[in-house]
């Protein structure tokens, strides 16, 4: 095994280095992450067990862990909704992005680079503007609803926006590039000859996909679903713009606790729970799909 490791080190050009150079390269960036990512997470943890003090905006540490239970109980519904919407959005995004990435990787010929640019291009228009554009396209005065109503496909009282459907598709839309690019990257790495080999060995199109293409693109599927699910589950913009009050997600609750109610401990407890829940899910997911190094 040791010999094998040596060989792989040679291939990837990794140098064993006893000098301080790699650490010098790491220090500035990692210090930044330590101070502005790790320390704040600890602050958040501390805040989550505090109780309100005498003045508004003042909190005293009393290690009240029941904050977690209270916060969770008061927003169970939004919590579950965040995960449900995130999951649905991820599935929709995967269903849209996989064939798209496949087409770009294997069927685009000389157009490949241009199509890749086109996948990222919508990303350059502020995502708020695009989300608001959806709201107006699908909204009460928009073209879609009026056409569907004239054709009697939906009734006068039915709207598309202000619904779970609008929030979930909005989430799927917004994070589509995050799904498409990792999928493309892993599909593009597949040697097309292995797919031909599967066909040669009596696998039809569907079996080739199931037995060869899909397993080989798993790293992309894992990366893409994570990059979509994580921001989708924590998002509150889509719920605010495209949803109704009954579509509020956990992000809406945290935001309101911070800025409207100024209940920092409850907001911190909810943030912490959200982060922990997502990290646990990721760990289970990556273990089960057998993907170790994600970065």
């Amino acid at each position: 095994m040791a010999a094998f490791r040596g060989a792989s080190a040679k291939v990837f050009g990794l140098k064993d280095n006893k000098s301080a150079l790699p650490y010098l390269l790491l220090i500035p960036g990692l210090l930044w992450l330590a101070i502005f990512f790790i320390v704040p997470i600890f602050s958040l943890g501390q805040m989550s067990t505090k109780v309100p003090g005498a003045d508004i905006g003042e909190f005293v540490q009393e290690y009240r862990f029941s904050n977690y239970i209270d916060a969770f109980n008061s927003s169970k519904e939004q919590f579950l909704r965040s995960f449900l919407y995130g999951l649905l959005a991820t599935i929709i995004a995967l269903a849209i992005a996989y064939p798209l990435a496949y087409a770009i990787a294997f069927k685009s010929g000389k157009w490949k680079n241009i199509l890749l640019v086109l996948v990222v291009a919508p990303f350059f228009v502020s995502f708020l503007l695009r989300t608001i554009a959806w709201k107006q396209i699908l909204g009460e005065e928009g073209p879609v609803v009026s056409v569907l109503r004239t054709l009697n496909i939906i009734s006068v009282n039915t709207s598309i926006t202000s619904s779970a459907f609008a929030v979930v598709t909005g989430l799927a839309y917004n994070f589509l590039p995050f799904m498409t690019l990792p999928l493309y990257a892993s599909l593009e790495r597949i040697d097309p000859r292995t797919l031909e080999a599967a066909g040669d060995l009596y696998a039809n199109g569907f079996t080739t996909f199931r037995k060869v293409t899909l397993p080989l693109s798993m790293p992309g599927v894992v990366a893409g679903t994570l990059l979509t699910f994580i921001p989708a589950a924590g998002d509150y913009i889509n719920a605010t713009i495209l949803g109704s009050p009954s579509n509020k997600m956990l992000g809406n609750v945290i935001e309101a606790r911070f800025f409207k109610i100024v209940d920092y401990p409850a907001a911190a407890a909810l943030s912490f729970t959200l982060m922990a829940a997502i990290l646990i899910l990721i760990t289970i997911y990556t273990k089960r799909t057998g993907t170790e190094e994600l970065v």
Partner: peptide, 22 residues
């Protein structure tokens, strides 16, 4: 690697909330 990965695996709202708290 883990320290690089974690901020990407953390929802933006948690990143924002924790910084504000600090």
């Amino acid at each position: 690697n883990l320290l690089i990965f974690l901020p990407m695996a953390t929802p933006e709202i948690v990143l924002g909330a924790s910084l504000l708290t600090m």
